[in-house]
Write a protein that binds this DNA or RNA. Structure first.
Length: 492
RNA sequence: CGGGGUGUAGCGUAGCCCGGUUAUCGCGCCACGUUUGGGACGUGGAGGCCGCAGGUUCGAAUCCUGCCACCCCGACCA
C-alpha cells in the first residue's frame, strides 16, 4: 500500500477509487461490475440502514421480502417500466449444469434444462410486488399497504464504479398502495422528505428537493421526486428518488378495489428507494486528500484511543484509563475503539484512522500520565488540543455534535456558492466549464430544449426545485417564455 | 457497446520497441533484536503459470491472434 492518496486536484476520479479501496470500504470482485463491500464499509451502510429503517417505521411502514426473480411475463406487464429497464436486465434461462462431455472437469449449461419461461433478475421490484398486491387488495379496508424491502437488485451497467454504479447494488425499495390519488401523492412527497432529512441530519449532506422533468422520470412513474446533492468536483449526484406511480401498475396488474362508495377503482401507487450509492455521496461530499471524513452520526466508531508507551507498565496504566474513558463514553452514547495493537506504532495508527475517517482521536502517552491530560484530535479540521482528562468525555460528546454540524455547514456553503443563476447560453456554458456546480436557468419546458442542452453541454436538468418561485423570463437556450428557473448540472 | 490506455510478487513498478544466462527496484510480508508523542531502524528470509488461451520460433514477459479484467472518454443509468 503506497502511503499517499492521489490528490483531488490531481485526479478526482482516481482519488475516489483509491480512497474507497485504501480506506477498506470496498473492492472490485471477480464478477464484472460487482463489488465486495468490506466490513468497514458495510458497517457504515448498516448505520445508514438502521437510521432509515427507523424513519420508515416511524412513518408507518413495515418490512417484507419479495423474490429476486421476476417471470418475464410479469416483468413486461407495465410497458413503460419494462421498456425502461429492458436494456440492462440479467436473465435466467436455465436451471441446471452438467459435466461437459467435451471438456474434462468442466461444467456446461444443460441444454435440456431450459426454463419454460425466462426469469428476469429484478432491476427493481414493482412487477413482482404489484402482482402480489393483486391478491391482497379487494376493499378500501385493505389499504393502504405501506411496505419496504431491503434487497439487492441487478442492473447490467456498461460502466461501473465502486458504490456509484455497480451491476449489483444494495438498496431499499418502498412500495405502497393507496385508495386515493391525493394520499399517494402525499406519501411520495413524504418519503422524499424523509430522504432529505436523513441526508442532511445523518450524512451531513445538503440536498435540494425537487421533481424530475418528464425525460428524467422513473420508467412507469407519473411524477418523480428526488433529492439532489452536489459533490466536491462540482458534479451533481441523485441521492434518492420517490415516485408517484398513479394507477399505472394497478392497471397493468389489474389491482382493483371497492371504495367506500361501493365503486370499483384502481389502486394508487408509490415507490421510493435509496441505495449503496449513498456511500459514494458520503465519500465525495466530505473527504479530503488524507482520506475519508465521516460524520459522527454514521461513523462505525466515533472515537479511537491510541496508546503511546515505552514499557508494559505504562501500557497498563494507559489501558486502565482508556477502559474507563470507553465506559464513560458508552453511557453518553458515544462509540469508541481502543486501538491497542502492539504491531503498529502510533504514527501508523494516526495515519490509518485519518484514512478511515474516524471523527475524533484520543492519544494518551507518558506526558499525559504526568499531567492528567490527553491529546484530542479532530479528523475534519486536523486540529489537536491538549485537554484535562476529567473534561474529556463531555468534551467529546459536545464536539461530536459540533463536527456533525460543521460538516453540514461546510458542505452547505460549498453547495450554496455553487448554484449560479445565468441569463444566456454563453454564460451557461462558461459557468459549467469553469465554476461547475448547479446552474439555475430559465427553461421553456420542452423535451427538445432539454435534450439539445444535454447534447451540447452534457448538463441535464437535475430537478425543478420544490416550491419553486415563479419568475417570468426567457429560456436560456431557445429564448421562449419561461415561468420558472430549473437546476442544471453535470451529473454522476 | 464504440474510441483510447493499462495488465510483470499483496501493492506500485523496470525490462517489451530490437526474442537469448538466475525477471529489476521500492513498499508491504515473515524471523530476531532495538524501538514507540505523526506512516521506525538494523540483520536475515520468503514470495512470480510476466492477466488468460492459442500461435510463430531452437528459444517468448518481449512478436502475432483471440479472450478477460481494470482505468479514461462517449452512449446508458440509482
Amino acid at each position: 500500500m503506497s502511503k499517499n492518496l492521489t490528490s483531488r486536484a490531481e485526479d478526482y476520479s482516481k482519488w475516489y477509487n483509491e480512497l474507497v479501496v485504501k480506506a477498506d470500504l470496498a473492492e472490485n470482485s471477480a464478477v464484472r461490475g460487482c463489488m465486495v463491500i468490506k466490513p468497514y464499509g458495510y458497517a457504515i451502510w448498516e448505520k445508514m440502514q438502521a437510521e432509515l429503517d427507523r424513519m420508515f417505521k416511524e412513518t408507518g411502514h413495515v418490512n417484507a421480502y419479495f423474490p429476486l426473480f421476476v417471470p418475464k411475463s410479469l416483468f413486461e406487464a407495465e410497458e413503460k417500466n419494462a421498456e425502461g429497464f429492458a436494456k440492462e436486465c440479467a436473465v435466467v434461462t436455465h436451471y441446471r449444469l452438467e459435466n461437459d462431455p467435451d471438456n474434462e472437469g468442466k461444467l456446461r449449461v444443460d441444454p435440456n434444462a431450459k426454463l419454460e419461461e425466462e426469469l428476469v433478475v429484478r432491476p427493481t421490484s414493482e412487477a413482482i410486488i404489484w402482482n402480489t398486491y393483486k391478491g391482497w387488495i379487494q376493499s378500501y379496508r385493505d389499504l393502504p399497504i405501506l411496505i419496504n424491502q431491503w434487497a439487492n437488485v441487478v442492473r447490467w451497467e456498461m460502466r461501473t464504479r465502486l458504490f456509484l454504479r455497480t451491476a449489483e447494488f444494495l438498496w431499499q425499495e418502498g412500495h405502497t398502495a393507496h385508495a386515493t390519488k391525493a394520499e399517494a401523492l402525499v406519501e411520495a412527497e413524504q418519503m422524499n422528505d424523509v430522504y432529505a432529512e436523513f441526508a442532511e441530519s445523518f450524512m451531513a449532506i445538503p440536498v435540494i428537493k425537487g421533481i424530475k422533468t418528464e425525460s428524467e422520470r422513473f420508467a412507469g412513474a407519473l411524477e418523480t421526486y428526488c433529492i439532489e446533492a452536489l459533490m466536491q468536483d462540482g458534479k451533481a449526484l441523485q441521492a434518492g428518488t420517490s415516485h408517484f406511480l398513479g394507477q399505472n401498475f394497478a392497471k397493468a396488474f389489474d389491482v382493483k378495489f371497492t371504495n367506500n362508495e361501493g365503486k370499483l377503482d384502481y389502486v394508487w401507487a408509490t415507490s421510493w428507494g435509496v441505495s449503496t450509492r449513498l456511500m459514494g455521496a458520503l465519500i465525495m461530499t466530505h473527504s479530503d486528500d488524507k482520506g475519508l471524513v465521516l460524520p459522527p452520526n454514521l461513523a462505525p466508531f466515533q472515537v479511537v484511543i491510541v496508546p503511546i508507551y515505552k514499557n508494559d507498565e505504562q501500557f497498563e496504566i494507559i489501558s486502565e484509563k482508556a477502559n474507563s474513558i470507553i465506559s464513560e463514553l458508552k453511557t453518553l452514547g458515544v462509540s469508541c475503539k481502543f486501538d491497542k495493537r502492539d504491531t503498529h506504532r502510533p504514527g501508523a495508527k494516526f495515519a490509518q484512522h485519518e484514512l478511515q475517517g474516524v471523527p475524533l482521536r484520543v492519544a494518551i502517552g507518558p506526558k499525559d500520565l504526568e499531567n492528567n491530560t490527553v491529546e484530542l484530535a479532530r479528523r475534519d479540521t486536523l486540529t489537536k488540543e491538549i485537554i484535562q482528562i476529567d473534561k474529556l468525555t463531555q468534551t467529546i460528546k459536545d464536539l461530536l455534535v459540533v463536527i456533525q454540524h460543521e460538516l453540514f455547514t461546510k458542505a452547505l456553503n460549498y453547495r450554496n456558492t455553487h448554484i449560479t443563476e445565468v441569463e444566456n447560453f454563453d454564460e451557461f456554458k462558461t459557468v459549467l466549464e469553469t465554476k461547475t456546480g448547479f446552474i439555475s436557468a430559465h427553461w421553456d419546458g420542452t423535451n427538445e430544449t432539454e435534450q439539445k442542452i444535454k447534447e451540447l453541454t452534457k448538463a441535464t436538468i437535475r430537478c425543478i426545485p420544490m416550491n419553486n418561485k415563479l419568475d417570468d423570463g426567457k429560456c436560456v437556450y431557445s429564448g421562449q417564455p419561461s415561468t420558472q428557473r430549473v437546476l442544471f448540472a453535470k451529473a454522476y
